[in-house]
Structure formats: C-alpha cells, structure tokens
Write a protein that binds this DNA or RNA. Structure first.
Lengths: 214, 214
DNA sequence: TGGTTTCCGAACCCGTAGTACGGTTTTCTG
DNA sequence: CAGAAAACCGTACTACGGGTTCGGAAACCA
C-alpha cells in the first residue's frame, strides 16, 4: 500500500522527464517500466491506460506548481507587506530559483501538452486549460490588489498583464531550451518584473516608495 | 519537375499542420500520404526518411518566418524613418496580423521542436537553435541602433530585451493555444511593445526608483 | 489465515517506418 | 521529334515496437 505509491511516483518521475524531452507520443511505456524496474502489467496496475498516465502527469504537475507559487509569493509578502513590492520580491525569488536549478531547465508540462493537444482527450485538455486559467486568476487578483494602491497606467489591461507572466515564463523556457542557456528564463522574468514596476510605479508614488527600500 | 515540387510542398503543409497539432512523433507518414493523395514510395522519393522530413520542415519554416519579419519591419520603417518608431509600428503590424489570422493560430514549429528535441538528431537541433539566434540578432541589432538615438534605461540588457520578443511570442502562442483564445498573442505583443517604449522613452522617474533591489 | 494490494509472464493485435522493385510520366537533349 | 534519363508513383512485403488484456502469483496487511 505504501510501496505501490512509491513506484507510481517513480513512474511519474520518469514519465515527466521523458515527456519533456521527447513528447508524450514518443515516450513508450516500455522505457518507463525499464527505468522503474517493473514489467508492463505492473504499469497497467497503476494506470488503466496511457491517457490515464497523461492525466496523472498534469494533475501532479499543476498541483506542485501551484504549491510552489503559493510558497514563493507568500515569502515575498512576508518580506514586504506592500502588495506591489511583495509581488516584486516574489518574482525575484522565482528568478533566483530558476537560476539556481541544479540541472538544466526541465520545461513546463503544460506547454508540452499544448503543442500536442490533439493526442489527448478533452478531459486532459480541459485540465491543462484550467491550470492556465488558475495562473491568470492568481496574477490578475494580485494586480487588482496592487492597483488599489498604485493606479496603473490606464492603457494596460491587467488581465493581459497577468497572462504575460505565464507567457514570459513559457517563452523563456522555450528560448532557454532551444539555445541550451539556463540563464535566459531568469533574465526574462526580471525583465517582466521591471515592466510590472513601470506599469504601477507612477512618479509621485514611486518617490514615496523609496522609504520601503533600505 | 514542377509537379513534384508541388506535391512535396503539399506534404510539408500537411506535415506542418499535423506536427503543430500532435507533435512530430505522433504524425505518421501514412496520414500525410493519405492527405496528399499519394503512396508511400512517393513520400520516400521526396524525403529519404522521416528525419529528412523534419529537416525540411524547419528549414522551410525558418525561411518563411524570416521573410515575413523582414517584410513587416521594412514596412514599419517605411512609415517612420526613426528606428524606434519604425520598430514600434512593425510590432503593431505584427500584432494586427496575428489578430486577423483566418484560422486559429498555427503555432510555432521551433517551439514544438524545442519540446521534443530528443527525438531529432543534432543537425536539426542546431538548425532550430540557429533560427532562435537569428531572431535574437535581428532584434538586438535593431535595439542597438535605437539606443544610439534613445538612450535606454541602463539596467536593461538589450540582448535580453531582444530575446524577450521571441519569448513573448512563443509564450503568447502557448497560452493562446491552451486557452483557445487567439486574441491573447496580439495583446501580449502589444504589451511587449509598450515595454520597449518605456525602455527607450523614459520619463525621469525610474532612475532612482530602480536602485531598489531588495 | 484470508483478503487486498501489488506486481509478473506471456500472449495478442495493430500501426509504423522503411524496403524492393517494377511501372509510368515528365523533361532534357541530339 | 525520338529516345534516353530523370523524376515520380504503385504494390507488396518485412520487421518491429507499441498499447492492451488476462490469468495468475508474491507481498503485504488485518
């Protein structure tokens, strides 16, 4: 009962790495069971078919991801009780975390799935979309909170600014991957951070904010 | 000699669409020849194997893409001989083009390949990386030109700003794809455009404000 | 001890990339 | 215009790996 969970998790680990490297269709069950040291029927005990594996993969990925972001921005807010600067610190923490990853960037499962969505059933596509919407919502709510204190430049749509966070992360991952340069993603995040600041930091308020420094 | 070229192009068309929808591994030669109305040996006359198809795909994609960007920014420069504003117009034209696409967004082959790079040989990965580097170079050179006339905010690295263009496009494509919302990409491009403007046309605020690096 | 969880062995069928080879059309050249 | 050469397509076949099923057997727990 405990061991089953462990091998299931190992299967998911191998699968996630393989999917990010080769895509879902090119990841064979054979290679997963070989890596996990079990046989095929062992696999089909844990997952009823390959689609079930895909579903488990995103579910786990989205959950972990949301947890990670929660922690990150919570820590940011602990360092600054101002909503804007807490967010900016959170972004910085994220950039640092991405810069200090032990190995090359793993990539994002949601992006991988998005570029192969026709091989998945609707349920999985829905899950993926819901994950994206959660990210949008997370950032949008934060921006609305910030906007109460720091009026944003009026022509900037806060929802698009929220989507920009995930867009810049996904894009940074792709460019970093293709160029095999893990420094790209963190730098992109910092540029995004800089942009967010320019959106909310109007001159008068920005001056007043200097007391937050130090 | 003429007809052969045409069927080859049709094969590439179907292949590109299928790869963007399902990934390269899940795209079978059988489905391509069925769509093109030829038989297998017809396919293997045009491409010596599947890897050869992949190579032809990116080559064509990168070439078309570069041509498209050339046209776009040339038109932008024709409307404004100022390097900054010509570029901004080019970005706007790009956003409009993406907004007015007849069908949903096709996606970017380079991104698709980046998330499945382990199924390709080194030559193809190199081609893909070279494409990315070309985009970086294109934008970086432009930014350096702009910087001669409009001094950028000093903390902004122009190379990263160049990468941000492709990152925002790739990211916008992914988010738009996952959410099935074709308006996302153009809006992201416009946000990027807004950021570029703030980088080069800075009101006096930011200098002091940006020292803030908790 | 009895039941549940976890895994194994072996077989099954299908789709896939790729080949061999012969035939037909198109294009070039004398 | 003839005819060779190049370009193109069809049929039939191989070899293999893929996902999936089923009947059990250890391992674990109550």
């Amino acid at each position: 009962m405990k061991k089953g969970r462990a091998t299931r998790d190992r299967l998911l680990d191998f699968a996630e790495a393989a999917v990010l490297a080769k895509g879902f269709a090119a990841t064979s069950i054979d290679e997963l069971i070989a890596a996990a040291g079990i046989t095929k029927s062992g696999f089909f005990y844990h997952f009823k078919d390959k689609a079930d594996l895909a579903k488990a993969l995103i579910l786990r990925y989205l959950e972990r991801d949301s947890e990670l972001l929660d922690n990150l921005f919570r820590r940011g807010d602990e360092l600054h009780d101002d909503p804007l600067h807490g967010f900016l610190v959170g972004l910085k923490l994220f950039a640092e975390m991405m810069a200090n990853l032990p190995e090359a960037h793993p990539g994002c499962l949601a992006a991988s799935f998005a570029y192969q969505d026709q091989i998945f059933n609707r349920e999985i596509r829905e899950l993926n979309a819901r994950g994206l919407l959660a990210w949008r919502r997370r950032f949008r709510e934060r921006f609305e909170l910030i906007a109460e204190r720091y009026p944003p430049r009026p022509e900037v749509d806060l929802e698009a600014l929220a989507d920009m966070a995930t867009a810049i992360i996904e894009g940074g991952l792709i460019v970093g991957r293709a160029l095999r340069d893990p420094t790209i993603l963190p730098r992109q995040v910092l540029l995004y951070r800089d942009y967010v600041r320019t959106v909310f930091a109007t001159p008068a308020i920005a001056a007043a904010d200097l007391r937050f420094a130090a």
